[in-house]
Structure formats: C-alpha cells, structure tokens
Design a protein around this nucleic acid. Structure first.
Length: 568
RNA sequence: UGGGCUGUCGUUCAAUUGGCAGGACGGCGGAUUCUGGCUCCGUUAAUCAAGGUUCGAGUCCUUGCAGCCCAGCCA
C-alpha cells in the first residue's frame, strides 16, 4: 500500500473574520505594533494537550501565519510540584503533529527566572511590592469576600530596605515553604479580587524539571505570564475567558514596571458534548485507571485522537469550523465527527473486513478454486492504486447483512434474495443453516458466473452490495470499537452525591475478533483506512505479527440503522 | 450580595456597524450510487424579556431576567 501519509495542510481560508482577527487587523491598520504580529502558545507542562488546546494552537499559530508573523511555543513552567518532562515532550510532539511550527523559538518561563527576579526587586524598590509574613489562611481571611473589601496586611508597610532584605533571604533559602510571600501592593478594596495585593512569589523547596534546585522561590502566573509575553515581544496574548479578571493585573504589572506591553485578548474555551476537557478531570481518568493512559483512543487528548486515527487535518478543520467568540458554548460532538469523516472520506484507502463473521458457502463454485479480483483503494481517486483480493468457495460476510425474516426495505441477504459481493459476483441465498436456537451457522448460496467483477450480466439490478472476505485467506484481527467515553451529553453535570465519573459510558470500548482481507497484513500503524460499509479504522501500536489490532476511528453514517430504528 | 464577561435556529458562527436575519453541523424529505458511504437537491428552525428612540432596531437607550468567571502561596 504505497500511499502518502497525511501531510500538513493549512486550514482553508474562511470568509468573515472572527473578533480577534478583526482587532488584529485594526491594530495593523493603526500601526499599533508596527504592523508586526507575534503570538505564543503557552501550555503548562502538567498534563497532555487536548481538544481545547487544539483550538488555541490553531488560533495562535494560524493568526501568526495569516498575518505574516510568528508564534512561539512557551512552556509556562512556574509550578515545579505539578510539572514534568514527560509532559513537555508530549506537548512538543502534539503541537508539531497539529502543524504548529515554532522553529527555534521554544521558550520556557523558567528561562526567565533571573530576569523575573530582577523585576520583582524593581517592584520592591519603587514601593509596589512587599514581603508578607501572613500565612496562607490569614491572607485568605484578609482578602475579604466578593462583597466586602479586604484588610491590609500588618506587614504591608515595611520599608523598601526590609522588603529587599527579606526577599533576598527568601531566595537564599532561609525560610521554609509557606512562611512568607512576595505580594504586589495594589488595592485591598478593589472590587476585582485579583487586584487585592496578589501574591507574586511563593517559597517552594522543590526540584524543578529544568532549573533543578537553583531556585526555592517561584513566581506566580500573573507575574510571569505578562512579563514573559513582554520579554518575547508578543503583540497579542490570546487566552481563555477565565483570565478576563486577570487582565487588569496583567496590565498593572507591565505598566508599573514600564516595560513593553502586549495586548491580552480573551476568547471562550472549547466545550464538547459527551466530553470532559478539564485537565484536572483528564488527569483523574488516567491516574485512577478509568482509561488506559493519556493516549487511550477514547480520550479527547491529541495523543488519544491521534492513536484513534483522527488525522491532524481533520482537527484543524474542526477548529476552523467551530468559530471563535466570547460566549460560552458547547459544540456538538457531531461537528467533530463530521470533520473526521469529511477528511477520511477523501483520503482513506478502502479495504474490506468483516467484524462479525458468518460463513457463506457458494455451492456452485468449484471447490479448491481461487480467483483474485483487482480492487481500487479509492474508487474516486485512481492514483491510490489497487490490490488483489482472493475469492473462493467459502467466504465470511457480516452477520448483520443477513436476515432470516427481512424487514421491509432490507436490501441485503435473506433466503431467496440476491445481492452483489463487492467487486466479485452476484449471489443468491438458498438457505440458512440454523442451530436449535435459531442462530445462523452457515449460509448456502449460489453465484452467477456471468456477474464476474460485480457487473450485472443482463442489466438486472440487485438491491444491495455487501462486503466479504475469503474464509481461507482471512486474517484474524482484534478490533476495538469505541463509543463516547461518557454516556451523557453533559458529563460535567452530575446529580447530588455523584461525580462526572458516574457518567462514564460502560460500553465505551467493545473488543471483537474480526476477519480482514489479506492485504492488511503488511500495513503499518498510523494510516487510517476505511473498512468498506463499516467505518474508519487505524492499526494500533498494540499489534503483533500474530494478531493485528485495529481501532475504530469513526463509523460511517448509517442511514439504514436509523431507518430500522425508526421502524421498531 | 461586589466586580467582570456573555445572551441570535436543536448546536455553532455570521449579519456590510441602524436597512430583506445568513452559513455550517444536526434533523426531516428526495435524487443518485457496485459502500444504505460519498455527492446533489429541497426543507426545518432563532434575535433572553419588557419598554423607548427611529421611516426602519439583532444592532442605539432604559429597566429587568438568565448563564459563566473571580475569595490558590494553581494556571
């Protein structure tokens, strides 16, 4: 099977721009940033990337590309107790897979620790930061509530000299965790809680995955992020809505320090039906073993989707279609499925496999005879080439393609009915051999030699075309059939006493033993194929030479199933 | 309860900035078909509410209502 693997294609241009691109155009028109555009994708390496990150990656790298600018990859690694190199590596791989190209601009907030520290001292020097001895609990108490203003810490008015000395001693490791913090001196009565003297630095005697034990004080997000953006010359700092409140502080830090000031713009994060997209919950699913790891094909992680067989291009298309706005929204899962099918329909080679086999014996076909039929990998794209598929007297077909008592409009096999075996012959079912319980053991059929290749010899129509595999040549395989990880549309909402885990779908994984056409013996993992009439499947890395393993990426749309369901 | 953000077909994003509410997904119906796939055609369905300004309001004003975010030494 010599077919090019999935390549990176830019998402198609769309008419009409979203509010962020509109603002960037305005900034360009006014020359605000000298016409330059520079964005960044700033993940914290404390988990694997998921669909929500895909939205951000497509936005940040997309905007940079469209406006002739650059996009940095920056690891927001300021919390050594939660971050790991494993995550850094997976993030790098996932961003690259999605098509993000940061060239040599791979940055780490931890690279700026020295610089950040200098800024902190500067803040102290100008009387805008102080060392507080209050405990975490006391700070919370002093912060006030949503409706009441906070109170100033008794340590708020220490002298610059004392603050400096204390802060240096914090850095030097003279204090244990939690006894002191550095705080910005802003306004304890601000209606925006973020501005009530936010913590800038905390003491953490912990080993950092990059800086090792060089530091025992670590800067907080609000202090780090804006300054990292500033240091990198970011023009537009795009983040999700929950940071709207933080923008006031973002602006305050930069203006107070008098440094270059990027523009933060917030957009609504992605939500998907039947899916959880919170890092905390995804970590829980992995750590508690509800799934088989971060790249379990049922996970909404990029590595899970990749292993499931979803092409990166389908994800890019998805991100382009869901749009960008400031209103909270929950995208229909069917939108994702549509993008996956759309891409795979155009690109996936067609092969045949039977997942629930029932034997067919063609009584008038010579015993021991084997023919080979040349079948195209993609009927609409001849350049995909073709392969030979063996045909013989005994075949497997899908159990579901036969009915002893066919319902109305059933176009498949039943006693006396004629169907086409895809690319092979017309066959007519003479009888079904049943066991006492009525289960089909074997179908006795006859074929029409004149219909060779699946052509109608006399213009007569057959109602259906079904797929098949020659029994003697069939390749057994394990096939993993996936369904939504969660059984309900909104897994995050659980009744009292229940959690999102109670919404887990017990049938999200079904494993079956299928029979594949022999050409599938050679395929490598990675390329997603269509098993004709069934869906899209992708060889899994769990495959062994003895037993290939396939993941179902998505089913085909099944109008018959819908029709039949309506009938019952 | 304080502050901030947001309300448009079932879902999601638009609406030339005050001028016939449009697209995509989904649903429904049909055509076509050697995949009950794909493709094609048709169809369905919305401006949170109430007032006001205006020849004209999704857009402007007023008053409500609803949802989301913020009280980490997480990001």
């Amino acid at each position: 099977m010599q077919i090019n693997s999935d390549t990176t294609t830019p998402e198609p241009a769309r008419p009409g721009v979203d509010f962020i691109r509109a603002r960037i155009q305005e900034d360009n028109a006014s020359g605000r940033f000298g016409g330059q555009i520079h964005t960044r994708f700033p993940p914290e390496p404390n988990g694997y990337l998921h669909l929500g990150h895909a939205k951000s990656i497509c936005l940040n790298f997309g905007v940079a590309r469209e406006f002739g600018g650059l996009c940095n990859l920056r690891f927001d690694d300021t919390n050594p107790t939660k971050e790991e190199v494993e995550y850094v590596e997976s993030i790098r791989e996932d961003v690259r897979w999605l098509g993000g190209d940061w060239q040599d601009r791979e940055f780490y907030a931890s690279n700026y620790f020295e610089q950040l520290y200098a800024y902190a001292e500067q803040l102290i020097q100008i009387g805008k930061a102080y060392v507080d001895d209050l405990s975490a609990d006391e700070i919370r108490e002093y912060r006030g509530t949503l409706t009441e203003p906070g109170r100033e810490s008794p340590y708020r008015n220490r002298s610059v000299k004392e603050n400096l000395a204390l802060f240096r001693r914090m850095r030097a490791g003279e204090f244990p965790d939690g006894v002191r913090v550095l705080r910005a001196k802003i306004d304890m009565a601000s209606p925006n809680l973020v501005m009530r003297d936010p913590t800038l630095y905390r003491i953490r005697h912990a080993e950092h995955h990059r800086t090792g034990n060089a530091w025992c004080i670590y800067p907080m997000y609000d202090f780090t992020h804006c300054l990292s953006d500033s240091l990198e010359g970011i023009t537009h700092s795009l983040c999700t809505l929950e940071f709207v409140n933080n923008r006031e502080l973002y602006d305050w830090v930069l203006d107070t320090l008098g440094v270059y000031h990027p523009q933060q713009i917030e957009f609504a994060r992605l939500n998907l039906t039947y899916t959880v997209l919170s890092k905390r919950k995804l970590i829980q699913l992995v750590k508690e073993g509800h799934v088989r790891g971060w790249d379990d094909p049922r996970m909404p992680t990029l590595s899970g989707l990749r292993r499931r067989g979803v092409p990166a291009a389908a994800l890019r298309e998805f991100c382009a279609r869901i749009g960008l706005a400031r209103a909270d929204s929950i995208v229909d899962y069917s939108m994702l499925e549509f993008c996956v099918r759309e891409h795979l329909n155009a690109h996936a080679p067609r092969v045949m496999a039977v997942l629930d086999p029932v034997k067919v014996v063609i009584e008038n076909y010579p015993e021991g005879q084997v023919e080979e039929f040349q079948m195209p990998y993609h009927p609409e794209t001849p350049s995909y080439g073709s392969r030979k598929v063996p045909f013989s007297r005994e075949l497997y077909i899908e159990r579901d393609d036969f009915r002893q008592d066919p319902p109305k409009k059933f176009h498949r096999l039943s006693p006396g009915a004629e169907v086409r075996l895809r690319y092979a012959y017309f066959i007519t079912c003479r009888e079904a051999v049943l066991d006492e319980a009525g289960n089909v053991l074997e179908l006795r059929c006859v074929y029409d030699p004149q219909s060779r290749g699946g052509q109608s010899p006399d213009g007569r129509k057959v109602k259906g075309t079904i797929h098949w595999v020659s029994a003697a040549h069939a390749l057994p395989a394990e096939v993993r059939l996936y369904d939504h990880l969660f059984a309900v549309e909104s897994p995050n909402t659980a009744p009292d006493g229940k959690t999102f885990l109670d919404n887990l779908n017990p049938d999200s994984l079904r494993v079956v033993r299928g029979m594949l056409e022999p050409a599938l013996a050679e395929g490598k993992a990675g390329r997603t194929l269509q098993f004709e009439r069934l869906g899209y499947f992708c060889k899994d890395r769990d495959s062994s030479p003895e037993l290939p393993v396939f993941n179902r990426t998505a089913t085909l749309r099944d109008t018959w199933a819908k029709l039949e369901k309506k009938g019952t």
